Amino acid sequence: MDKVFIVYIMASRKNGTLYVGVSGDPEVRIWQHKNNWFEGFTKRYGVKRLVWYEVHEDAEAAIRREKRLKEWHRAWKIRLIEARNPDWRDLYPEVTGER
């Protein structure tokens, strides 16, 4: 299987603190956020819920998309999340294949 990269948005709760990231090992990286593996923003603000993600086959494209999303206004990010995930449920099981 070819390597995939995801651009993702995590939240502390519905309409809570948002974090935008990118990863080439999404299952592990999201687990790290959820379990406070590293000191930093997501641990400090309790950002543990994967609420949106987008799959890319190319690392450079994923990084470009992440940088663009980080520049977006908060309202735009919320609309993006709610278009796919209006209840702000945790999408981590989709990433791990647990559904």
Results as ranks from 00 to 15, higher is better:
residue 47 V to H: 00
residue 55 V to K: 13
residue 9 I to Q: 00
residue 74 R to P: 03
residue 87 D to V: 08
residue 69 L to S: 01
residue 62 A to K: 00
residue 41 F to P: 05
residue 3 K to A: 13
residue 25 D to E: 14
residue 33 H to N: 06
residue 53 Y to T: 01
residue 17 T to Q: 14
residue 41 F to W: 11
residue 1 M to F: 12
residue 17 T to G: 06
residue 34 K to Y: 08
residue 4 V to I: 15
residue 17 T to K: 15
residue 46 G to F: 13
residue 21 G to E: 02
residue 31 W to E: 05
residue 98 E to A: 13
residue 37 W to C: 10
residue 20 V to P: 04
residue 59 A to Y: 15
residue 61 A to V: 11
residue 66 E to R: 05
residue 14 K to F: 07
residue 79 R to D: 11
residue 74 R to E: 10
residue 67 K to G: 05
residue 98 E to Y: 14
residue 85 N to K: 12
residue 8 Y to G: 00
residue 70 K to Y: 10
residue 15 N to F: 14
residue 85 N to S: 08
residue 46 G to A: 12
residue 95 V to Y: 02
residue 98 E to R: 15
residue 58 D to M: 13
residue 26 P to I: 01
residue 54 E to V: 04
residue 69 L to H: 03
residue 97 G to H: 14
residue 48 K to T: 04
residue 41 F to D: 06
residue 94 E to D: 11
residue 19 Y to M: 05
residue 59 A to I: 08
residue 63 I to S: 05
residue 98 E to P: 05
residue 1 M to V: 12
residue 88 W to L: 07
residue 19 Y to H: 14
residue 53 Y to S: 01
residue 56 H to V: 03
residue 65 R to M: 04
residue 26 P to Q: 09
residue 91 L to Q: 01
residue 8 Y to E: 02
residue 78 I to N: 06
residue 19 Y to D: 01
residue 81 I to Y: 04
residue 40 G to C: 13
residue 39 E to V: 09
residue 86 P to K: 12
residue 12 S to K: 11
residue 4 V to L: 15
residue 79 R to F: 07
residue 52 W to L: 03
residue 46 G to N: 15
residue 49 R to S: 04
residue 89 R to D: 08
residue 40 G to T: 11
residue 43 K to L: 06
residue 45 Y to S: 03
residue 99 R to L: 10
residue 11 A to T: 02
residue 56 H to F: 15
residue 53 Y to N: 02
residue 62 A to V: 00
residue 88 W to C: 06
residue 61 A to H: 09
residue 3 K to V: 07
residue 73 H to W: 09
residue 19 Y to N: 04
residue 72 W to G: 00
residue 79 R to S: 10
residue 88 W to G: 03
residue 90 D to A: 04
residue 41 F to A: 08
residue 47 V to N: 00
residue 7 V to K: 00
residue 42 T to E: 05
residue 17 T to N: 12
residue 72 W to I: 01
residue 32 Q to M: 12
residue 30 I to K: 02
residue 15 N to S: 07
residue 29 R to Q: 13
residue 84 R to S: 12
residue 85 N to D: 08
residue 92 Y to E: 01
residue 64 R to G: 03
residue 48 K to S: 04
residue 32 Q to R: 12
residue 54 E to F: 07
residue 7 V to A: 03
residue 83 A to N: 14
residue 85 N to L: 10
residue 4 V to D: 03
residue 57 E to I: 08
residue 11 A to G: 10
residue 62 A to W: 00
residue 13 R to F: 08
residue 45 Y to Q: 05
residue 51 V to H: 02
residue 86 P to G: 07
residue 92 Y to W: 11
residue 74 R to S: 08
residue 22 V to W: 01
residue 17 T to P: 05
residue 68 R to P: 04
residue 69 L to T: 01
residue 32 Q to D: 11
residue 58 D to N: 15
residue 93 P to N: 05
residue 89 R to K: 13
residue 21 G to A: 06
residue 69 L to R: 02
residue 31 W to I: 02
residue 75 A to F: 12
residue 84 R to M: 11
residue 67 K to D: 09
residue 5 F to I: 01
residue 3 K to H: 08
residue 76 W to D: 10
residue 73 H to G: 13
residue 84 R to C: 07
residue 82 E to G: 08
residue 87 D to K: 15
residue 93 P to Y: 05
residue 28 V to G: 11
residue 64 R to E: 08
